[in-house]
Amino acid sequence: MSALIIAGAVMLVLGLLLAAMLAAANKKLYVYEDPRIDEVEAQLPAANCGACGFAGCRAFAEAVIRGEATPGQCTASSAEIVESIAEYLGVDAGVGEKHVARLACAGGDDVAKRFAHYEGRYSCRAASLVAGGGKHCTFGCIGYGDCVEVCPFDALHLNEHLIPVVDEDKCTACGNCVTECPKNLFSIQPISNKLWVACATRLRGRDAKQACAVACIGCGLCAKAAPEAVSMDGNLPVVDYDKNEFAVRDAIEVCPSGAICWLEDGERIIGEKAQKALDKWFNPPPKKEKPAPEVAETSEVSG
């Protein structure tokens, strides 16, 4: 009986001793953490997308509280959330212009030819390593949707012609698609940049036209129509967005293929001339006495 009492007493004393140590350690080793970090983090979208440039939402919340970032830098949050965080912390929201991801290619399967059939792992990255993906224009979008896979906001979808379309309302400019695309076709752009070169080909003239109906043929007409904003880099036009006010719609009206386009609310608008050419391309007028078309030989590509 006494053994039980002794054991119980020892345990009790030990317990009290350890509890006292823990209590002391709690006071001694306490790390103060700003309670606002948790509050701010709770309001953030918790997507950890990294678009703000910090390692996840908590790191961003800490940076905002330290004053190293503004709430507006979180492009994934809606305007209300940003406003509410700014109000809670009593800082300026620092909302910049909305940015979205844009694809420098419009060559879906309807307009851009594939000359080889790819077999193997169904991913752009894998296909691009085997033989460029099998599309005639090897600079363009392969269309297997690697970007759709990595989009955390459901803002990217392949359309019926296997071209990813950005949902500008949902896009938060996190940049995941930019890093994922093996052809480096995505870039993050302010939404006010309306004049857009939707082509990345380095082919010229006839070669480009053969590969894709909406390819830039490098004629330079757009650069002549909007000389302040558009210049030619090799065979591709480059829009200088510092002079965005000069980026006028005239440039798309002169384009014979629709490679340079106007983006309005996520819609791709091409000039009338280009539209006519494209209609003609889809419904070619019947030709007289045309020899039997040569069957293009295709070879297989597999991984």
């Binding site: 000359f115 085997v130 070879s299």
Partner: peptide, 18 residues
Amino acid sequence: ARKIISGGPMMGMSLSSQ
């Protein structure tokens, strides 16, 4: 013929065009 490979069958690469 269905496929053209450059190199040997083990390490070669399929060609996408002739």
